[in-house]
Design a protein around this nucleic acid. Structure first.
Lengths: 112, 112
DNA sequence: TGACTTAGTAAGAAATAACTGCATACTTGT
DNA sequence: ACAAGTATGCAGTTATTTCTTACTAAGTCA
């Protein structure tokens, strides 16, 4: 008895499609901590991410309204990324989730 | 400059490993709504899930301390699943995330 | 001229997650 | 006797994500 005909209609599932893949949280976190980062700076903050995945993710997050891209017409090129208001609105939820995650980590450690 | 040497140490990333895969939220949600469900009942509530994925997920979630399995020695077999306290502690975070997700859904609809 | 910088792109391979279909062993209802 | 319901599990395949290894443009600096 789901409230939603399609799973995609559930706001929670929808939220997870926005932040649930492997690199979304690290990207959001780096932007939150630094407010504004250039492409390669961001890449250095998100350790291990490839160009492919980073540029793809940024493009998607821009379309989804989580991230703003600001391009300067300079050479060498300069592009700055930051969170939108909607992106920042996500932070409290993430902090709440992180708190739960932390408690779970402790529990697992003590149990095993 | 991550605070954690390994990504797995981040409580947030850890939380997502617990709830981020395709069927975790639907399962948790069904158990939250109904408090206690037998295996096949649960399966009917989580529309489209396969036995493979459901039984696998339940086993993992039991190990992770999110779900309790209570087995009755009857014939035909009876097994009841419910959320642990830790599992229920997750609900407020999910509600907060869902609220954000809902706002994002509206935003996307209005924009496109 | 040739190396260096920045912000990406492209194509294919590899890794991971999920699905399909079937099997179990026992009991109740028709 | 036979179908249906109980709680799973396994093998094999497909689908989805992520990674690898290149490569680009335009200008600067030596």
């Amino acid at each position: 008895m789901n409230r939603y005909k399609r799973k995609e209609d559930c706001p929670l599932t929808f939220a997870l499609t926005l932040i649930g893949s492997k690199w979304r949280l690290p990207i959001i976190w780096a932007l939150w901590k630094n407010k504004t980062l250039r492409y390669n700076e961001l890449k250095r903050h998100v350790d291990g991410i490839t160009n492919m995945v980073l540029s793809q993710s940024l493009k998607e997050m821009e379309n989804q309204g989580i991230v703003v891209r600001k391009q300067f017409l300079e050479i060498p090129p300069r592009v700055e990324y930051s969170l939108t208001e909607a992106g920042e609105a996500l932070i409290p939820s993430l902090e709440s989730l992180a708190k739960w995650g932390k408690a779970m980590q402790v529990k697992v450690k003590n149990h095993v």
